[in-house]
């Protein structure tokens, strides 16, 4: 029971992290129509920037400065690259960001090497928040979850209570309206892109210390984020939230599960056959955990192609 509780908590926190990245992606897509393939690269940049800054500034300042730097990168990308190719259409913009994700990953490899760097949770945060039946629960996980929650509240307030927020929100649902606002649109685009990037950067700066910081982290998380937006429906914040949590929780439940498909088949007397076939049927759920989100995505595609909360195309 306690294990399930732990898994639920881990899953929720991982889900919140996913949401931090997918929220920015959704925001940018809804506003600009651009699927930013390099979004997860911003997450990675956040982690590496924080890792680099940490010895100089200490952990706290590092996780504040890193997202700001990432925001700067995001703004440069929007201003000097995306805007340049805007006239060629959204598919072209997607491709350019795809190219950027390659360039960023290769640059990271060049500067920091191909393997994980030693970016760790600082000692002062590395303690148990509580323990259940003798198992400690790391405080840092709660800390990540807390940051994610604080971010949502901040974004939510920004979007609902400020003038800029109203412009951005109306742009998500009525892009033409914002077009009609004329001169300040490029500025709003740049701002949204920058903030989206900063969000991903913050997620990276915080999570990189807990998970691993390596040149593959962008791809690994990026794929999960894409699964989240396919499942949740791009442009729907609620959908992104629900899908992030769903995927985070199933993932961490599966990691702790020894369940095998062969076990079900044993119930109907086909256990022997399943053992003989082997392969997928005898694989433990825990080793399949990484693939579970993909299966959820396929299921959603069959049952509800437009996503959990997506509108029909």
């Amino acid at each position: 029971m306690d294990q399930i509780l732990f898994a639920l908590l881990n899953g929720t926190i991982y889900g919140l992290l996913l949401f931090m990245v997918s929220a920015g992606l959704t925001l940018i897509f809804g506003m600009m129509g651009v699927l930013n393939f390099a979004h997860a690269s911003f997450y990675m940049l956040g982690a590496y920037f924080a890792y680099t800054l940490q010895p100089l500034t200490g952990f706290w300042l590092a996780i504040i400065l890193a997202p700001i730097l990432v925001m700067g990168v995001g703004i440069l990308v929007e201003r000097f690259i995306l805007r340049h190719v805007h006239e060629h259409g959204h598919a072209h913009e997607l491709l350019v960001t795809f190219g950027l994700s390659v360039v960023i990953a290769e640059m990271i490899k060049m500067v920091y090497g191909k393997f994980a760097v030693d970016y760790r949770v600082p000692a002062e945060l590395n303690f148990a928040a509580f323990s259940l039946s003798g198992i400690d629960y790391p405080f840092y996980r709660l800390f990540m979850g807390g940051i994610a929650v604080v971010m949502f509240i901040a974004i939510y307030l920004l979007l609902t209570k400020t003038r800029v927020g109203i412009v951005v929100r109306s742009a998500i649902y009525r892009p033409q309206m914002v077009e009609a606002l004329g001169h300040n649109v490029p500025m709003v685009f740049m701002g949204v892109f920058g903030i989206g990037a900063a969000l991903a950067g913050l997620a990276g700066a915080v999570a990189g210390a807990f998970y691993t910081t390596n040149p593959n982290m962008a791809l690994e998380l990026g794929v999960m984020v894409f699964v989240v937006v396919v499942v949740g429906g791009l442009g729907s914040m609620g959908g992104a939230m629900a899908a992030s949590l769903l995927i985070g929780i199933t993932n961490s439940l599966a990691v702790g599960s020894d369940f095998r498909i062969a076990d079900i088949l044993t119930w109907i007397g086909m256990g022997g056959w399943a053992e003989e076939i082997g392969g997928l049927l005898t694989m433990r759920m825990s080793s399949l955990a990484a693939t579970l989100p993909f299966f959820i995505m396929l299921l959603v595609l069959v049952l509800r192609p437009s996503g959990l909360m997506g509108e029909k195309e």
């Binding site: 897509f29 959204h90 392969g279 995505m297 595609l301 192609p305």
Partner: peptide, 27 residues
């Protein structure tokens, strides 16, 4: 089943699915 950017994301996810499964299917 989907078009545009969704299509692109799904193709990526399917390839990653296969890539994640492959190490488990030794035969």
């Amino acid at each position: 089943k989907r078009t545009g950017v969704y299509f692109a994301m799904i193709t990526l996810a399917l390839a990653e699915l296969l890539h994640a499964l492959a190490p488990h299917l030794k035969t």
